[in-house]
């Protein structure tokens, strides 16, 4: 069963067609990676799904409900959560407060205290709880934002380049973390460039090119596609 269905969605910015007639289905419980060269429209498609951009045409369904006209907060309340491409935390507020703001609608009292400790430990930020979020390293800010997205316990977690700026060890750890959320039933849609990371987590892959769906399937199927190799991966990656 599809948790998210994108049906014939296009997005124009003036004369530029960033996303063109895209159909995408994300099944409940899968880790789905969206890949493609720079400018392929991946982040635009993400923003269309969470409602930061209205589509020029087409419709978006979440859990079989048409959410095309809904504002982002309403989509989040339905069970979506996103980590943006650039770290998007509350930089002038302490780390702990960032987590609390994300948690406060869903939890209270002792439960919130337990949950915030669990998240801080999970993110490796327990020692930095009183630091301003803006004082964290780029990688730590990425982690904090992932933690804030997780605090909502979403059905669908959207991660836009979650490992940008992370070391190989942090990238691997992030992949394992995503797999553990997925094992608990969370559906994850990821935009990523790092093919080793995609290989680590992806169950299905969709390739976007020039705003259109170019290919879809398992990572192995994608890697064996000569056309994909030519436009994006480079032939050396395909073999």
């Amino acid at each position: 069963m599809s948790l998210v269905e994108v049906k014939g969605v296009s997005k124009r910015f003036g004369g530029l067609r960033a996303v063109s007639e895209v159909d995408l289905s994300v099944k409940a419980g899968e880790v789905h990676c969206l890949i493609g060269p720079n400018g392929a429209g991946k982040s635009t498609l993400f923003k269309l799904i969470v409602g930061l951009f209205p589509p020029t045409s087409g419709s978006i369904l979440f859990d079989s409900v048409d959410i095309t006209a809904e504002r982002p907060f309403a989509r989040v309340q339905r069970g979506m959560s996103i980590k943006m491409q650039a770290p998007s935390v509350f930089k002038e507020l302490p780390v702990l407060q960032n987590i609390q703001i994300a948690l406060q609608e869903r939890t209270s009292g002792a439960e919130r205290a337990r949950e915030q400790e669990r998240l801080l430990e999970l993110l490796g930020l327990a020692q930095d709880r009183t630091k301003m979020a803006g004082a964290l390293s780029h990688g730590q800010q990425q982690w904090l934002e992932i933690g804030m997205a997780l605090a909502l316990q979403p059905q669908l977690l959207l991660l836009d380049e979650p490992t940008a700026g992370m070391s190989p060890e942090e990238t691997f750890k992030t992949g394992e973390l995503i797999k553990s959320f997925n094992a608990e039933g969370m559906t994850v849609l990821v935009v990523e460039h790092d093919m080793a990371f995609v290989r680590q987590i992806a169950q299905r892959v969709t390739v976007l090119h020039l705003g259109k769906i170019f290919a879809r399937g398992s990572l192995d199927e994608i890697l064996q596609d000569e056309q994909v190799a030519e436009i994006y991966l480079g032939k050396t990656h395909a073999h």
Partner: peptide, 24 residues
């Protein structure tokens, strides 16, 4: 309070506050 948390979160980054489910 929790309301104050959202008020300052909106000042800091309204888009992120909305993406946490708040109608800012």
């Amino acid at each position: 309070s929790g309301i104050g948390n959202v008020i300052v979160a909106t000042r800091e980054n309204p888009q992120r506050a909305e993406m946490l489910g708040y109608d800012v």
